[in-house]
């Protein structure tokens, strides 16, 4: 039996397929083409009428739908039961999840059940071989799961030679969302939900939910003004907001700035925050720690404003302005306004 690539697709609060899932389908499509296997996806939720249309542009071969009352909002046990059984029944060889609060709740429990490995927060996925000297065996086309490790100070390539499926989670924004040219409709399989579930799977109940509208759209911004610990205070962050407003960008931050309470955590960029690839990234008082760079080094152009001429960020910045945030930003606003009409 051929071994397929399988993506768990999440449903957003608004009832759409989550971006991170579409990104994973795009990556899964490329991986499946390379190995000449099928790309499969599963969606678990309620009233999933529109998902086939939403997923069609991504070249999925088979789409499993578990559509029933009680499957949205997400609850661990029902999703876990369905997903782990469908993966096992169909012998998927590679399974991808978004590294979201849902994916990071679900994937480890599934991996434990299937007794397989799971690599969290991969930044790249590719195929490669692996030779074991002791047994003189070569494993062909293993999934290389590449991720920063040990606080981002090293990059590790993780493999699962024997105990499959090979499972990984990937954060939003890490893979590119790309539709397929002239895709055909996926084969849709409606799962018989009752077959997988029992009453016990619903022993945890949801009493209340408060969902905020998406506030900041850092991921989609073409220009990002990011502040670090060197910005010094939440007052000084106002300078960054002024600059962002003047040039039409969003404000991001490092973890150090978030931890210091200068700004909210929803703006954190990096390994444990958002991954961005804007046209222009202006790093203000940011030292450029690996964990931060992991979320922004794909930016087309980088400007750094720093009082330290040797900060690590200078290695990846296109323009290094030696100076303080307080001094430089007002000047940038002033001369931007003067030169653009």
């Amino acid at each position: 039996m051929e071994k397929n690539i399988f993506v768990y697709c999440e449903i957003t609060e608004e009832g759409h397929i989550a971006d991170v899932s579409l990104e994973l389908c795009s990556k899964g499509y490329k991986l499946a083409k390379e190995l000449k296997v099928k790309l499969e996806a599963i969606v678990v939720g309620s009233q999933l009428d529109m998902v086939v249309e939403e997923l069609t542009p991504y070249g999925i071969d088979t789409l499993y739908l578990a559509d029933a009352k009680g499957l949205f909002p997400y609850l661990t046990l029902p999703h876990f039961k369905i997903v782990s059984q469908v993966i096992a029944e169909n012998k998927a060889d590679i399974v991808l999840f978004g590294a979201t609060s849902i994916g990071r709740d679900l994937a480890p429990r599934v991996a434990s059940k299937l007794k397989c490995g799971l690599t969290a927060d991969c930044t790249a996925l590719e195929f490669g071989d692996h030779y074991v000297k002791k047994t003189d065996t070569t494993y062909k086309n293993l999934l290389y799961q590449i991720r920063p490790a040990f606080g981002g100070n090293i990059v590790a390539t993780i493999i699962n030679p024997d105990m499959h499926p090979q499972m990984a989670t990937v954060r939003e924004g890490v893979m590119k969302k790309e539709t397929v040219k002239s895709p055909s409709k996926p084969k849709v399989i409606h799962l018989e939900v009752d077959k997988y579930l029992s009453d016990e799977d619903f022993i945890i109940s949801i009493l209340e939910r408060h969902i905020e509208a998406p506030k900041v759209n850092i991921k989609g911004a073409q220009i990002i003004v990011a502040g670090g610990y060197g910005v010094g205070s939440s007052e000084n962050f106002k300078l960054l907001f002024d600059l962002a407003e003047a040039i039409g960008g969003e404000v991001g931050a490092t973890r150090a700035a978030v931890d210091a309470g200068f700004i909210g955590h929803e703006r954190q960029i990096g390994q444990t925050g958002i991954t961005v690839r804007p046209k222009l990234y202006i790093a203000c008082g940011v030292s450029g720690a690996v964990q931060h760079r992991a979320g922004m080094d794909q930016s087309a152009q980088i400007i750094s404003i720093n009082t330290d001429p040797n900060a690590p960020i200078t290695h990846i910045a296109d323009y290094n302005i030696l100076g303080s945030v307080e001094e430089v930003i007002p000047k940038m606003i002033k001369y931007y306004r003067q030169n653009s009409k």
Binding site: K115, C116, G117, L118, T119, H130, Y144, Q145, P148, A149, G152, N153, I154, V155, A156, T157, I158, I159, N160, P161, D162, M163, V290, I303, I305, P309, P312, T314, H315, I316, A317, D318, Y319, N320, I321, L322, G323, S324, E327, V328, K331, M332, Y335, Q338, N339
Partner: peptide, 30 residues
Amino acid sequence: PTKVKTIENVVFTQKDSLKMGASDGEINKL
């Protein structure tokens, strides 16, 4: 099930970068 195949230090790839000061003239030009 998971094995570490390789570990690499994170290396900087040096970009062609422009070093500049914070004078009005320089920021204006930028």
